[in-house]
Design a protein around this nucleic acid. Structure first.
Length: 834
RNA sequence: GCGGCGGUGGCGGAACGGUAGACGCGGGGCCCUCAAAAGGCCCUGUCCGAAAGGGCGUGUGGGUUCGACUCCCACCCGCCGCACCA
């Protein structure tokens, strides 16, 4: 019937051109220097909507499209609620993949990264994402990393960045050090999958452990998904307990050596029957020296250190270890207990040494059984019988008259107090979190801005000399040291302090450093005097809504929180948390599997945009299911959404034709009845539903609600006034705009000649959300037996009468005794019979 | 092992303790057409029944309730995170 054809390939570029020409989505900061409170008094509230910045590699995939569609819907919604919205974009442009690609192909990482960025930009525009391009940045630009370096030096000066030799995770393939977080459970490199080795190297660390307690505590004040908070809590791994000192007097009683241990169970101290050190413990070989076990200990330590994490971390393998031929004294009872070295004790947790209580710890029990060591039970369950090892609560036995008979929880506190008084220990808290290793022996990263001088030591490059620019080099292949070390011009410099000859640091920073502060830079992206203006931050930060994948639940999100707190402590920020609210989107899979080139199941956004348009593709990624859950891609599904958008668009085109072209305004028609009223009701129902759903991120049901409205419009199109039709279609376009901006801008313009994004978000009329008659559900014993028309004003008594009079209810009441009647006004009546 | 999330038609998924299966996909029938594409209309959990209607149905088994996908207890299965963390 219609010659109107829905053609996204014509519609979408037309609107994109307008938004680009008019710079529709740019926001300008309020006047700088003005006091933030005063400047904002007459301004609408601000909203900072941010999706995690992409790593530009190749071209964007469907997961990017989902993420930015999600953020865009929120940004549009906030704008139309009257807020000033900051919605910027940038690129996490340093990193190993670009460098590895360069080593393979010879194309400089800067070139391949720039190409990829250009493709991302092109597609983001083609998707119609409402980005403020005036603030665009790439972390690999000197104008950006200058400030990354500045932040590093601020941390360095505050003692939060430091150098130390450490046993570090080394990837033999990538030829670089990795952070603990970048090594997976099997001891494999997160990026290339090869087995990681341990090496002793001097490295740069950031003191994130100083912030463990605050990173943990402040999780309570942010609006993040509970599972992400839980992951962070687990990662921080706080344990309460005590540090207890065991003394070794085997060498010279006059000069004893103290070995503190951390334990969460000081109540079991009387059950300690031996003592174990980690193979990495610096004293292990010295202790064994001169004993019968010297040779065995040396061999054991060598073997343990050469084992991969995978081999060593296997909890299934039997416990191994070697005696050291020495003893330590248990401070609570003066017993001398034997020392061992065993690989089940980890150097990086606690003090690298433990007291072993086999009766009440599974691992110690296993070790004791293997080596025939004594097992002394010191806690008895209330029913008296325990299978060892027993980890539960109970009453202290075999300990000391002072504590025997006490409940173990009380005893724990009493023993810690006693240790404290005696100077043999104290209450203590331990964290699993390690300091963040940030140096990388690679080329394509932000240079660490320090200089080594033989007279002055480690010297910070003065702020006015920043950035320390990444030099051009020929050969960036890794050889176990940074490729920068062979760039003589870069390496050799003069000391900023004494002006004598000096060498530059040649390591670069972990790319997670770059992305730990980019959200700050967007607030004032073009400032080349300072990293940000305080007023600009006051205006936008913290981010109101952050959006990204759960894969960043620990690393990126923890590091960004750490940076924020550290910078706040240094007086540079006035808030403690960068991301007030977080939404983690689920993955888009294909045939149940993660999309990957090797599987050949990659869905290309560019091809989809060609076929069905950006709007259909965007809508479908959000319609497919709850956006925080993983969802499987269906080509048929996206076509369904395309058909739906076409139906809406054609309805608008036909209606505009019937009204003789656009007419300004979209007022609700006057009260009506019959179909006219039904359509009006449905329209208001949709306004209410979509508004509610947008606030709770239920985008799938929001889109479904507009589909329902459009179905209703199609059904009633010939039965209602043009005015009602126009209102319903225009409202459908208005409500769907955050998801399908091009199509809806077009729908709205055809009907009104106006720009939908400049219109306030529609508001439902209360009286149209209520019905004066409804279908009363009539139940007998909880089963639906009939439905009858009921008036909204009917009293409970009248509703009961209606129900009892319903034909099919009568049939089920026959001969039974009515014992109870439940009335839920507006819903149902339930008759209970016997 | 610990922690978290989930299990609903052929499929993706809806459902403040109150009509289970909205919306979409797929399937079936029909209209438009010379035909096709596009578009439109109707049906579609399952079993019995010509129909009216009825039985059964949200992983399993219990419980609370007039009423349970929803709340409680126990269990099974799947996914994710952490894991020799003292």
């Amino acid at each position: 019937m219609s010659e109107h054809r829905y053609d996204p390939r014509e519609i979408e570029p037309r609107w994109q051109a307008l938004w680009a020409r008019e710079r529709t989505w740019e926001v300008v900061n309020l006047e700088e220097g003005a006091s933030p409170g005063a400047a904002r008094a007459n301004e609408p509230p601000s909203s900072y909507v941010l999706e995690m910045l992409p790593y530009p590699s190749g071209e964007p995939h469907i997961g990017h499209l989902k993420c930015y569609s999600l953020g865009d819907a929120i940004a549009h919604f906030h704008r139309r609620l009257g807020k000033r919205v900051l919605h910027p974009m940038g690129y996490d442009a340093f990193g190993l993949p670009a460098e590895n690609h360069a080593i393979r192909t010879g194309v400089h990482p800067r070139v391949s990264t720039a190409e990829s960025i250009a493709e991302f930009q092109r597609q983001f525009r083609e998707w119609g994402i409402s980005i403020d391009w005036s603030r665009e940045l790439a972390t690999s630009e000197p104008s950006y990393y200058r400030w990354t370096q500045w932040i590093f030096l601020e941390l360095f000066k505050a003692g939060l960045a430091y150098r130390r030799e450490a046993a570090v995770k080394w990837c033999p393939n990538d030829q670089t050090v990795l952070a603990n977080e970048q090594v997976d459970a099997e001891g494999r490199c997160e990026r290339c999958g090869c087995l990681v080795e341990v090496r002793q190297l001097e490295q740069w660390f950031l003191r994130i452990t100083d912030y463990a307690e605050r990173l943990l505590a402040d999780l309570d004040v942010i609006d993040w998904p509970e599972h992400v908070k839980t992951m962070q809590r687990n990662w921080i791994g706080r344990s309460e307990g005590a540090e207890v000192t065991f003394r070794c007097e085997d060498f010279d009683p006059a000069h004893p050596v103290d070995y503190p241990v951390f334990t969460t169970r000081p109540d079991t101290l009387f059950g300690a029957t031996f003592f174990v050190m980690a193979p990495e413990h610096p004293d292990v070989l010295r202790l064994a020296e001169g004993t019968d076990h010297e040779q065995a200990a040396r061999e054991y330590v060598n073997k343990a250190l050469n084992e991969t994490n995978e081999e060593r971390g296997d909890t299934e393998k039997p416990k191994t270890g070697v005696p050291l031929g020495r003893t330590v004294t248990n401070p609570v009872n003066g017993e001398r207990i034997p020392m061992f070295v065993a690989d089940y004790v980890l150097m990086e947790y606690g003090t690298g040494a433990i007291m072993a209580v086999p009766a009440h710890d599974e691992r110690d029990y296993e070790f004791a059984v293997t080596f025939g060591l004594p097992i002394r039970q010191v806690i008895e369950p209330l029913d008296g019988d325990a299978e060892l090892p027993y980890m539960g609560d109970g009453v202290l036995i075999n300990s000391n008259p002072q504590f025997d008979g006490m409940n173990n929880r009380e005893a724990l506190a009493a023993i810690v107090a006693w240790l404290d008084r005696e100077g043999k220990g104290h209450a203590s808290v331990n964290y699993r979190l390690r300091d963040w290793l940030v140096s990388r022996q690679r080329y394509w990263g932000c240079p660490i801005p320090v200089v080594y001088c033989d007279t002055c030591g480690i010297v910070a490059v003065p702020a006015e000399q920043l950035p320390v620019e990444l030099p051009e080099i020929e050969d960036y292949a890794p050889r176990g040291r940074s490729p920068l070390a062979s760039a003589e011009d870069f390496l050799n410099t003069s000391c900023p302090s004494c002006e004598g000859p000096a060498r530059r640091e040649t390591d670069t920073m972990d790319t997670f450093v770059d992305s730990s502060w980019y959200f700050l830079r967007y607030c004032d992206a073009r400032n080349d005097e300072v990293p940000w203006d305080a007023g600009a931050l006051a205006e936008w930060m913290p981010v109101d809504q952050y959006i990204g994948g759960v894969e960043h639940a620990i690393l990126h999100l923890m590091y960004a929180r750490f940076f924020t707190k550290a910078l706040a402590d240094l007086g540079h920020l006035e808030f403690q948390e960068p991301f007030q609210a977080l939404f983690t989107q689920g993955m888009v899979t294909k045939d149940g599997a993660k999309m990957s080139k090797s599987r050949g199941n990659v869905v290309s956004p560019a091809a989809l945009v060609q076929r069905v348009g950006a709007d259909a593709t965007r809508c479908y990624t959000l319609f497919i299911g709850p956006p925080d859950q993983d969802a499987d891609w269906s080509d048929k599904g996206v076509e369904g959404v395309h058909r739906f958008l076409g139906r809406l668009w054609r309805l608008a085109a036909e209606t505009a034709e019937r009204t003789g072209g656009p007419a300004p305004g979209l007022d609700s028609p006057p009260p009506a009845e019959g179909d006219e009223l039904a359509l009006l009701r449905k329209t208001n129902w949709a306004i209410d539903k979509v508004s509610t759903d947008l606030r709770r991120f239920a985008f799938n049901t929001a889109i479904a609600a507009v589909m329902e409205l459009v179905n209703e419009i199609s059904r009633l199109r010939d039965a209602v006034s043009l005015e009602a039709l126009r209102f319903a279609i225009g409202t459908a376009g208005s409500l769907l705009f955050p998801f399908a901006p091009h199509t809806c801008a077009d729908v709205y313009e055809q009907l009104t000649g106006e720009r939908v994004w400049e219109q306030p978000w529609p508001e439902a009329e209360e009286e149209l959300l209520e019905r004066e008659v409804y279908e009363l559900v009539c139940q007998v014993n909880g089963k639906v037996r009939d439905r009858v028309q009921a008036s909204a004003e009917a009293t409970p008594e009248q509703l009961k009468d209606l129900c009892r009079g319903a034909p099919n209810v009568i049939a089920h009441l026959d001969g039974k005794e009515l014992v109870k009647e439940i009335v839920v006004p507006g819903k149902l009546v339930n008759l209970v019979v016997r």
